[in-house]
Write a protein that binds this DNA or RNA. Sequence first.
DNA 1: ACCTGAACACCGTTCAAGT
DNA 2: ACCTGAACACCGTTCAAGT
Lengths: 227, 227
Amino acid sequence: MTRKVPTPRRRESSLSREQIVEASIALLDASGESGLTFRALAEHLATGAGAIYWHVASKSDLLTAACDAIVARSLHATARKSAAPKPAIRALALALFDAIDTHPWVGSALTRAPGSLPMVRILERIGQQVVALGVPGAAQWTTTNALLSYILGVSGQNAANAHLAREQGFERDSFLGEVSAEWAQLDGAEFPFTRSVAAHMLAHDDRADFLAGVDLILAGIPAARRR
Amino acid sequence: MTRKVPTPRRRESSLSREQIVEASIALLDASGESGLTFRALAEHLATGAGAIYWHVASKSDLLTAACDAIVARSLHATARKSAAPKPAIRALALALFDAIDTHPWVGSALTRAPGSLPMVRILERIGQQVVALGVPGAAQWTTTNALLSYILGVSGQNAANAHLAREQGFERDSFLGEVSAEWAQLDGAEFPFTRSVAAHMLAHDDRADFLAGVDLILAGIPAARRR
DNA sequence: ACCTGAACACCGTTCAAGT
DNA sequence: ACCTGAACACCGTTCAAGT
């Protein structure tokens, strides 16, 4: 993070970390995690594969940086609304859900980078609202963690669905149709619940269900305190 | 899934899908997701890489099968205790947490296989208890989904911590120490919450916090119904 | 029916050599 | 200080050929 004063003497159009991250995001959005390749990146940036390593430590460094750019952007867009804590948490949750829906690779990449900067950004924002909610000190960590896990968990699953559907050339709807049909054919004695929700899962609205789950957790917070 | 009657005529010690899955689990446990390689697997099984493709469709098929073996085993171990719904959900959650802690690769692999058999097994078990809890029809899917996402989300994060720590050659504790120290040095104006929980995160018990979160959601269920 | 192993088309990463 | 591009040590997957 210590940035030395640069003395740009050579050509002005030299490679920069931001350029590389931006190009990475474009590749990731276009063709998923497998689309991010040092060779593809080099071609995209009209340079050699080795050049990228001057600005970036490794592929996982690059992926984390790309994640952080998306997360920071998304959090920035929902910042400073100064709403009450619970509406603020709902807005935050939806912003992340939408960001991960738009950039499905963010979901799985975040999971593999615990304690990294993008995760800390989210933790911080949720935590501040949990504190504002009046949750006592000892429960703040647990409550924030529960919300964080739910938000990233469901958003990630939703994105994985979308990604898998696209990968198999289906529309998202017809992919859900496939899964629903599979579930409906499961053994009734062994999988009664899954069979019973097969129809609902076909018709459901991912975003609305996601928000309902957030509300479920939010509802549990005062209830848990009252015990 | 249609299994033709096999006519084993050649040598009795032929390769089987179960053998391959078992060897895969061993490799995954020993050296993580990057340790599962068709070449390593072939060497382990004293065969050629191509032979494995006779029994397995692809690497992702193999990974899903390995996941399913672990999940099925773990669910079977906690089956038929016929406890009340909430204790049953807690026991189920802990069993999965422990299984993913022991086999960290299960956490990330599950995320990438939505709608697959191992996921359905878990969905089914949680769903049955949610139904037993008396949650009305319309809310069953959402409630089950929330629990599923929380359980897999937190377990996955915990496993990712363990895996990352091991990868970097740290003990788990000293890895958490690193992260905690980093958090304590964050900018106080921008990251007040993260700074304030840095100490707690060092001392906390992952398993206990995980269970507390499950209780938080369980507490929210009746509260949400009462609205 | 099942296995072998070479071959194909890729990867991330390194590094001498250039400017 | 920054870039080039060949080279290294790998991958998953395929497929003719064997038994």
